[in-house]
Simulated assay, not measured.
Amino acid sequence: MPVSAAFLSLPPLVVAFPVIDPVAVSIGPLAIRWYALAYIAGLVGGWFYARRLVAASSLWGNVRRPTGADIDDMLLYVALGVILGGRIGYILFYSPGQYLEDPLSIFAVWQGGMAFHGGLAGAAIAMFLLARARGLLVLSLFDVAATVAPIGIFFGRIANFINGELWGRPAPDLPFAMVFPHGGPLPRHPSQLYEAFAEGLLLFILLAVVVRIVGFRRPGLVTGVFAVGYAVARSVCEFFREPDPQLGFLFGTQVSALEGGITMGMVLSLPLLIAGIWLIVRALSRQPSTQETVS
Rank of each mutant, 00 (worst) to 15 (best):
F7N: 12
L8N: 10
P12K: 06
V14A: 09
V14H: 10
V14F: 06
V19T: 14
V23L: 06
A24F: 11
S26Y: 00
I27R: 09
L30G: 06
L30S: 08
I32A: 01
L37Q: 03
Y39L: 09
L43C: 01
L43P: 00
G45P: 08
G46I: 04
W47K: 01
R51N: 13
V54D: 09
V54P: 09
G61A: 06
R64H: 08
T67E: 15
G68C: 06
A69C: 00
A69D: 15
I71D: 05
D73A: 10
L76Y: 14
A79D: 03
A79H: 03
L80D: 11
V82E: 09
I83P: 03
L84V: 15
L84K: 07
R87G: 07
I88N: 07
S95E: 12
S95D: 15
S95Y: 05
G97L: 10
L100Q: 04
L100P: 02
D102A: 14
P103H: 13
P103K: 11
L104N: 06
S105R: 15
S105I: 02
F107G: 01
F107C: 00
F107P: 01
V109M: 09
Q111I: 02
G112T: 07
M114D: 03
G119H: 06
L120V: 10
L120H: 05
A121M: 15
G122S: 06
A124T: 11
F128W: 15
L130T: 03
R132P: 00
R132V: 00
V138T: 15
L139K: 09
L141P: 02
L141I: 05
A145D: 00
P150H: 04
I151M: 03
F155M: 05
R157P: 06
F161V: 07
I162G: 11
N163E: 05
N163K: 02
G164T: 12
E165K: 11
W167K: 10
G168M: 09
P170R: 12
P170L: 10
P172H: 09
P175Q: 10
P175L: 11
M178C: 12
M178W: 12
V179C: 02
V179N: 08
P181V: 10
P181W: 14
G183I: 04
G183A: 14
G184T: 09
P185E: 01
L186C: 02
P190K: 08
G200N: 06
L201Q: 06
F204L: 15
F204G: 08
L206R: 01
L207C: 01
L207N: 00
A208N: 03
G215L: 02
R218F: 01
R218G: 00
R218V: 00
R218T: 04
G220L: 02
G220N: 01
V222S: 01
G224I: 02
Y230W: 13
V236A: 14
V236W: 14
C237R: 08
F239E: 11
F239R: 13
F240G: 03
F240V: 11
P245L: 04
P245T: 06
P245K: 05
Q246G: 11
Q246P: 04
Q246V: 12
L247E: 07
F251E: 08
F251N: 09
Q254D: 07
L258V: 13
G261T: 11
T263V: 03
M264Q: 11
M266I: 13
V267R: 02
S269L: 12
L270P: 04
L272D: 06
I274A: 04
G276T: 05
L279Q: 07
I280F: 05
R282A: 07
S285Q: 08
Q287D: 13
T290W: 03
S295F: 08
